[in-house]
Design a protein around this nucleic acid. Structure first.
Length: 235
DNA sequence: GTCCGGAGTA
DNA sequence: TACTCTGGAC
């Protein structure tokens, strides 16, 4: 199966700019951005981010406020803070052997940076890779990572896989199956998440939001600081 | 297990 | 309008 996968990948690889670098910082930024957002939206944001902060030292020297503002619209604002803190850790101590020591870096992201930047033969298992492995019953090694990403993103889709176009269908026991959605999420409209988002945007714009609960929650995550009830972005 | 954003899509 | 989509922290 591995050979069929890699042959397909050679002919169908997506053109993603972070695949052209081995800089662990640039790759980490791409992985953190991609943890929540579609590839097409991330590409311009990733380019702009690296233009503004080309190195891990540059990001470490930025203010948290600038990082939060630059992250606007990418979602999950805690990740921006974690990325900033991770950069400060690396700028001070260098890259740790165990990348999960960095805030916001778990098993998946550590494996991705370890493989793509440091050349370790580890397979970063994200939801796409897990799905392909479960459906095919095959265990792939680290050299298949990018191929599995692309297969999972374009062919082996979560609910209605395109088995007719799949290079692994000939040997796949799940060929032709369809699946129920795995998670359900409450509506964003009217949610506390939305209130947090609105409050943070207001603070970033220099306003004082009236939503105290949202501000307290943001302060717990280090996204705002409260002094005598006055909210501002962290320095 | 729950929480976390918000744009794209049907 | 309602629903889809992530990995990590807790």
């Amino acid at each position: 199966m591995k050979n069929a996968l890699l042959a397909w990948f050679q002919a169908n690889e997506r053109d993603l700019p972070w695949r052209k670098t081995r800089d662990p910082y640039a790759i980490l930024v791409s992985e953190v951005m991609l943890q929540q957002t579609q590839v097409d939206r991330v590409i311009p944001r990733w380019r702009a981010w690296l233009e503004r902060w080309p190195t891990v030292e540059a990001l470490a020297a930025a203010s948290a406020a600038d990082v939060i503002v630059a992250w606007q619209g990418l979602g999950y604002n805690r990740r921006a803070i974690n990325l900033h803190r991770a950069a400060q850790h690396v700028a001070t101590h260098g890259w740790p052997d165990d990348l999960t020591e960095l805030p916001g870096v778990g098993a998946y992201t550590a494996a991705a940076v370890g493989n793509f930047a440091f050349g370790h033969d580890v397979l970063p298992v994200d939801t796409n890779v897990r799905r392909v492995q479960e459906r095919t019953g095959e265990s792939f090694d680290g050299s298949c990572a990018q191929a599995l990403f692309d297969l999972g993103a374009t062919i082996c889709l979560a609910r209605v896989p395109r088995c007719g176009d799949c290079p692994l269908a000939y040997a796949c026991p799940s060929r032709g199956r369809r699946y129920e959605p795995l998670r359900k999420q409450p509506a964003f409209e009217g949610s506390f998440r939305q209130r947090r988002s609105l409050a943070l945007r207001a603070v970033a714009a220099g306003d004082q939001p009236a939503d105290g609960d949202a501000l307290v929650s943001l302060a717990r995550d280090g996204l705002v600081v409260l002094h005598d009830g006055v909210a501002s972005l962290p320095a």
